[in-house]
Design a protein around this nucleic acid. Sequence first.
DNA 1: TTGTTTTCTTAACGAGCGGTACAAAATCAT
DNA 2: ATGATTTTGTACCGCTCGTTAAGAAAACAA
Lengths: 208, 208
Amino acid sequence: MAGPGRPRAFDTDEALDAAVEVFWRRGFAGASLTELAAAMGVNKPSVYGAFGDKAQLFQAALRRYVERNMAYVADALERPTAWECAQAFLVGNALAVTMPGRPAGCLSVQAIATPDDSGEYAVLAENRAMVQRMFADRFRRALADGDLQAGEDPDELATFLITLSSGFAVRAADGTPRQSLLAMAERAMAAFPAPAADSRSATFEGRH
Amino acid sequence: MAGPGRPRAFDTDEALDAAVEVFWRRGFAGASLTELAAAMGVNKPSVYGAFGDKAQLFQAALRRYVERNMAYVADALERPTAWECAQAFLVGNALAVTMPGRPAGCLSVQAIATPDDSGEYAVLAENRAMVQRMFADRFRRALADGDLQAGEDPDELATFLITLSSGFAVRAADGTPRQSLLAMAERAMAAFPAPAADSRSATFEGRH
DNA sequence: TTGTTTTCTTAACGAGCGGTACAAAATCAT
DNA sequence: ATGATTTTGTACCGCTCGTTAAGAAAACAA
C-alpha cells in the first residue's frame, strides 16, 4: 500500500472530522485556515497537500457531514408511508440539530449566510435542493401508491419539510431546546395530509 | 439648527438606507467598509464620523430595517384574534422576504450565520427573541380573552411562528418563489389551533 | 550508499480587512 | 478678517486572511 516518499504523519479521516467540527461551528468564511489547521493537528501546508484549498476542504467536510450527521434523511425516506416519512424526517432533524456535545444547528444551513461569497453558497443550496428533490420523489411515489391522497402536491409537501428543517437549524443555533423543536415537529405534522388514521398518536409517544 | 463647522455633504438617512441594502445582501461580516462606503456614496472616514464603527453602523441599519421592512409584525399583532394574528404574520413574512427589487431573505436571519464573530450574533438573536416574546404575550392575552382555547401553550405557538419565518427567510434566499412560501403559510395555519370556524377559508382567497 | 519521491516545518507573500492621522476645505461666531 | 469647529479627501496603519516557496526530513527503490 505504501509507495515511496515520506509517510503522512496524521490520519486524514480524523483531520477531516476535526475540520467538520470547525466549519460547523464557524461557518465557511468564519473558519480560518489557521484555526482549521490547529484543530486538525496539522500545519497549514499539509492541509493543502492533503485536501487542496479551502473550498475543496469544505466540500470534503460537507460530504463527511452528510454521511455522518444526516443519516436520518435516508432513514426517513425508507419509511413505509409518506406520513411516517415526513414525521421521521422532522423528528430526526430536530434531534440532529440539537445533538449534545456537537455544535447546535446544521452545517448545511448555517455554514454560509449570504450568496456571492464564492461558489460555496451554491454548493449548500444545491445540497438543500437535493434533499428536497428526494422527498418530492418519495411523495410522488406515495401518490402513485395511493398512500398520499390525490390532489396533494409532492413538491409543496417537500418544500414544507425542508423549510421547517431550515427553521429548526436557525432556532437550534439560537439555543432553542430539543424539546421545543420536537413539539414543533409534532405540531407541524398536523398540517401534513392524511394522518392515515392510525399512526399519528402512537409514534410520538415516549419521545419526550 | 446648523452649528459651526463644515456642513455634512450627504444625507445620513439615504446613506443608512444604502447600508441596509448592503448588509441585507452581504451579511455583517460579508459587507466590507469599502463596499458600504461606496454604496453610501461617502468616504470611509465620513462613515465613522457619522455612524461610529462597523458594529454601530450595523445596529443603526438593523433598527432602520425593522421599522421599514418589518412593519408587518406590528400589523399582525394588532389583529383581533390569535389565529388572524398568526396568519397575518406568516403571510406578511412570506411577502417581506420575497419583495421584488429587494434582497431575498431577512436581514435579521441572514446577516450573521454563526456565533462568536463578535457581539453581532447576539444582537440578531435578541431581535428574533423579542419578536417571539411579543407573539407569546399576544397569545397569552388571547388565552385570557378566551380567544385561544385553554391548554394551548403561548410560548410554543410563538416559537412555531418564528421558526417558520426563519425557515421562510432561508428558503427565500435560496430562491424559493413567493407563491411557494404563501402556500406553506396557508398549510402551516392548519397546525395552528382553533381556526375559529369562520375566518380560515376566506382570508386566503384572492391572495394567489 | 545514492537517488527519487513525498511530506514535513518555517517563513513569508500579496491582498483585503477595520480603522485612523493629517491637512485642506467649508461653515459659524466674533 | 480671524479663530474655532466640523467634515472632507487622501493616504496609510497594523492585522489577518488564504496561499505558497524553499529546504530539511523520512520513507522507498536501485
